[in-house]
Design a protein around this nucleic acid. Structure first.
Lengths: 214, 214
DNA sequence: ACGTGTGAAGCATTTCACAGCG
DNA sequence: CGCTGTGAAATGCTTCACACGT
């Protein structure tokens, strides 16, 4: 197996998203006891085409064996390495409302290597509790100190839209380099900081549009 | 203003997403008392470029006035019409866990014309309550009957991943044509049914990838 | 013989640049 | 004159088809 240096080739955002998907598929193949898969196997399972998959891999190296296929376990390792999730990432959750609890309640983040290691919340009564599920909980005022102390690089904004702008500034001031924003607010970030939005309403609007035009 | 028939021209998914964004921006311009905006105004506010915006509009018609710009209110109407959200859509929420409550607790869906008009939940104790925030709550077994009676066309899956596959089948059987899936399960749908996935972990992996490569 | 890896072709989307119109 | 609307150019992404290695 050969692993390219990612160097200065621009890799399509779509490729990255698909790699995450492939990785999930492989998880299932693995559970099913499959040792070797072909690009067509993966394609069938996750609804892309085989050439796409091989091309996606090719950005990062040669992960397979010609005439044979891909060794499931090796491939998973390679993909994780390519994505940078062959390690654990500490995240800060800002906002302990229903959405925040939903994120804490699912294991799908932890399973993918994202550990929420601090919670920040406005409501003093909640903060009073000190922690939730063994994750320490702080007031908003502690954000700068805690995030730099913990060396947290990823922040998750799950507050109400009005507060989102201030929170994003505070996170960035504290040294966060990547933000996942669950509010519909359009937040601007300085270069060097990555920002990704999750907006249910936009997805629903996409659905509405399709249905609208039969 | 001229409004094209959407006819059989394929409109990029990305254009649809951006239109939703533009609409939000206009909301803010509107609140700020602005009556007329240019494509550059919108571009600045939501981080695209003016040509992109004009091109996006052009798929649907001529929304502006040459030499002048766009009348904010008219433009919003036109965009909503283009997206098919100049009306209200009834949705069914399946799963009344933290995530479900988070969706119910935010007004951002209602503000965009999506009304959750039925909740389905597995836990009998919750179902016993009969309703939540005036929205009737049913057991899973009632899904087929209620959805066809109410004429619901959009379903939101907010259950655990193991249950997601069955729920998707049940929704489709009941006549749902669009599904928003919050689980990481990869669900296949028959032609004629739209499926959109919301997967936080994939977005986080996108962030991790960027950070990983400086 | 088989399935990967990859240049080249094909398609889609974005950006440019300017004509058109108030 | 200014800003939209739009063909044409540029860019980016996906699919094809076949050489290559096992």
């Amino acid at each position: 197996m050969v692993f390219k240096k990612v160097s200065r080739i621009k890799i399509p955002e779509a490729t990255i998203r698909r790699l995450s998907l492939y990785d999930r598929c492989l998880e299932e193949f693995n559970k099913g006891g499959k040792k070797i898969v072909s690009s067509s196997d993966i394609a069938r399972k996750c609804g892309t085409n085989p050439a796409q998959i091989r091309k996606d891999f090719a950005y990062f190296g040669e992960f397979g064996v010609r005439g044979v296929g891909y060794y499931v376990e090796n491939l998973q390792e390679d993909i994780k390495r390519a994505l940078g999730i062959n390690r654990s990432w500490n995240c800060a959750l800002v906002g302990a409302g229903n959405l925040g609890f939903a994120l804490l309640g699912t294991d799908s983040l932890a399973k993918r290597g994202f550990r929420i290691s601090a919670i920040f919340e406005r409501d003093p009564i909640l903060v009073e509790m000190g922690s939730f599920q063994d994750i320490p909980m702080f007031s908003m005022a502690d954000m700068h100190r805690v995030i730099s102390e913990f060396g947290i690089k990823i922040g998750i904004i799950a507050v109400n839209p009005e507060t989102a702008l201030k929170v994003s500034h505070d996170l960035i001031d504290a040294g966060v380099k990547g933000i996942l924003n669950f509010t519909p607010a359009t937040l601007k970030v300085p270069p060097g900081v990555i920002m990704r939005n999750v907006d249910f309403a936009i997805d629903l609007e996409g659905i509405a549009f399709q249905l609208h035009n039969e």
